[in-house]
Design a binder for these strands. Structure first.
Ligand SMILES: [Mn+2]
Ligand SMILES: [Mn+2]
Ligand SMILES: [Mn+2]
Ligand SMILES: [Mn+2]
Lengths: 236, 236
DNA sequence: TGCAGGGTTTAGATAAGTCTAATTCGCGAA
DNA sequence: TTCGCGAATTAGACTTATCTAAACCCTGCA
């Protein structure tokens, strides 16, 4: 009812939606303003390509742009990002829960479909799943009015002290590849683990239910955890 | 531009897939060779647009083309058509059976998604539904090796004799619009009806479970039926 | 048999999204 | 304060899919 008409009148291409999603992802990863080169890097295109696309997004009122300084999402751009994120995460949840996909194999499929499913279908999926708050990777799912559930505080596995038991809450990812790696290592949201060693270059060795696992820093950095004590509280 | 990978690393755009589907649909509707203008009409584009696309499809080995005479699908083109049809019809069946869609509201959604779902997802949907042989409109669903179940013989409602009880088997359609019209008229696959009158211009009046319905020729022509006697046999 | 009208193709333009090469800008170091 | 280097933008080209206008081919009717 509310935003449906907006989406129609917006009529963004899948490519534009990907730029908006990328700006949202990079910004929420720390940066205040998102640079042309950061986007080029993230989307695997050249800087001139990004530059011209940012001008189009500015014309459409989706980003605020300052020459040579980068962009930020406008309020409308933010809504677009949340809408696509809602599609993406609900698709991931649905594939996992209703079509027997492994949690580590749903991202790429969702990443394509997110641009083509209607809001109607998305809402039906949400309904069928009982309006879940998080997807299979622990990412919060924007609800129908596009407000994002506040995720609880977490810390990166790379910064956890040795000997402190923690529970995996969320796994950042850009593709199925990292997820597959972690799935094969026996790590997934909900698993309890304990860091037993941090070697040079950030290599983290953790004890997990099935034994021990060593993870390179780039991977350990993707894992968000909470202290096991806190996790227990929430269960109760 | 979004592309999909085919088994022989054959990459087709959604647009090309739509042309292949259209050629398949028009040809299976009688024509042996499909003309440029028939395609332009069906796809709602101009003749020059079709002409240039047909040359590209010929280069890719998907159609056999004869200048000024039209095209036919090659064996490979036929497989592409069947693959997309499998996606489309399984999506329609899934939306109807698992996400509470009305059978008359699934075509347009499936028509977009068919180009973006992977074969993997399609197979999982088929599995979840128990490998159905027909979709909600009575269209046969190609199985995993792309062989199309032979649909039983049917006749068009427009040609049914007055007073002969028949059962609706299949409803041809190009969009949700015709389906919505029929759904609102109380006609859907499985419904038993009897033609009570054929007026000038092909207007068909039929008795259906809820009363009587008059259908314009363009609509009546879309409905495929079998004699009620035959239908009963199959039930038994 | 010939030609006119209609369907088909060619020619040339446009919009989206991408690239490489060239140019311009900003900012930290000298 | 000025340079120079890297980041950003501009310029120009290419591909896909579409259009309109013009030229071309086929065929049925005279
Ligand atoms: Mn994902
Ligand atoms: Mn996710
Ligand atoms: Mn359909
Ligand atoms: Mn159908």
């Amino acid at each position: 009812m509310r935003f449906r008409w907006k989406r129609e009148s917006r009529m963004l291409s899948a490519v534009m939606e990907d730029y908006i999603k990328a700006i949202y992802a990079i910004r929420s990863d720390g940066q205040e303003r998102v640079s042309t080169s950061a986007l080029a890097d993230y989307l695997d295109v050249t800087a001139p390509t990004v530059s011209s696309m940012l001008k189009k997004l500015e014309e459409r009122g989706l980003v605020d742009r300052e020459e040579y300084k980068g962009v930020t999402l406008t309020e409308e751009g933010e809504l677009v990002a949340l809408e696509i994120l809602r599609h993406h995460r609900l698709l991931e949840a649905f594939l996992t829960e209703r079509l027997d996909y492994d949690w580590a194999d749903v991202h790429d499929e969702a990443d394509r479909l997110e641009h083509h499913v209607s809001d109607e279908l998305t809402d039906r999926i949400a309904e069928a799943l009982g309006n879940p708050g998080v997807d299979p990777h622990g990412d919060p799912i924007p609800d129908a009015d596009l407000s994002l559930p506040e995720p609880g505080d977490t810390i990166r596995l790379a910064t956890v002290a040795e000997g402190e038991p923690v529970v995996v809450r969320r796994i950042r990812h850009q593709g199925d590849e990292e997820l597959r790696y972690l799935a094969d290592a026996g790590i997934r949201p909900g698993v309890e683990l304990e860091v037993v060693d941090v070697a040079p270059f950030g290599m983290v060795t953790a004890e997990i239910p099935g034994g021990e696992q060593s993870l390179p820093e780039e991977i350990a950095r993707l894992i968000e955890v909470v202290p096991a004590a806190e996790a227990d509280e929430l269960e109760a």
